[in-house]
Design a protein around this nucleic acid. Structure first.
Lengths: 154, 154
DNA sequence: CTGATTTTGACCTTTCTTGACCTTCGCTGT
DNA sequence: ACAGCGAAGGTCAAGAAAGGTCAAAATCAG
């Protein structure tokens, strides 16, 4: 049973898939009514699943005629993809950011859900023994190494 | 007499046999109820019979709508090869042994020379900062993690 | 009998859901 | 102008709904 938050997330991402320009605009109350939940549930979904780390930007305006706008940041074309990713990983990365990145790779179909699960599990296992800042440093290079191997590129 | 843990193990593996993609998702409480046991029994089964060394990866999420997901690793050509390798790596491995292993994998064509080089380089980089015994422990899990990803099919 | 494995249960952490209360914005009447 | 009102959306904290941990107790195999 997927949670309500999951359903809303899927719904919004489906909308984004259809939308041109990777941007959608919604009314918080309306969406809440569709899912029969309190409006703040929408904020929860946005706060936990549409962060910049996950590749989204959310804008909103209050008052009459208010709205919530969600845009999906796009990664460039495949040739430079790995490079961009590695760049965004940097020398150090938190478990949360790493998982968000894997999530995005899954969403765009760059890795299968099985691969995603394995990468995530590996990252967690390998770095669980280390303390900051070593864990973040290790995670970064481990992730880059695994992605390089996966994509068979340099 | 098969123990409870054995029964749960068999049940889960039967589910995996039927499942597409070698992946299943369960609710810990539900499973516990089916077998009329405490939920933590499920964790025990997972911890003792579904480890990476035995060819499984387990992921889970807490909170409302939580779940436990189990993946069976199915690596290609020589069935069981990765499992054997993981076993032979153990909990700890020296840089020399690791490189020798990579070398062998290269010889039998399990990894390309590029991949071999990448793996070797990653191993060196990641563990150069640590002192024994941490470097060996880290190297072992690093190597297993990367090989898991590398041999992943689907 | 002894050591290893299994089973249980008390307690912990994470994630989700809800609701009360707050802030911002546009419009309208003075 | 501008004060007031209604219509958005925002915040936060409490409680519910999962799963996780750990170690003691029970059981099993040799």
């Amino acid at each position: 049973m997927a949670s309500l938050a999951d359903s809303i997330e899927r719904y919004l991402k489906a909308l984004l898939d259809q939308a041109r320009e990777g941007m959608i605009e919604i009314r918080r109350v309306e969406l809440a009514q569709e899912f029969e939940c309190v409006p703040s549930q929408i904020n929860y979904v946005l706060a936990t699943r549409f962060t910049p780390e996950q590749g989204y930007v959310v804008e909103s305006r209050r008052g009459g005629g208010g709205y919530i706008r969600i845009l999906r940041l796009s990664w460039g074309s495949p040739p430079g993809l790995l490079q961009q990713i590695c760049c965004s990983i940097g020398d150090e990365i938190s478990q949360e950011d790493a998982e968000a990145l894997l999530c995005r790779l899954g969403e765009i179909g760059a890795v299968s859900s099985r691969q995603e699960a394995m990468l995530r599990a590996s990252l967690r296992m390998e770095t669980s023994m280390l303390d900051p800042p070593w864990d973040g440093i290790l995670r970064a290079s481990l992730l880059k190494a695994m992605l390089m191997v996966l994509f068979e590129e340099y």
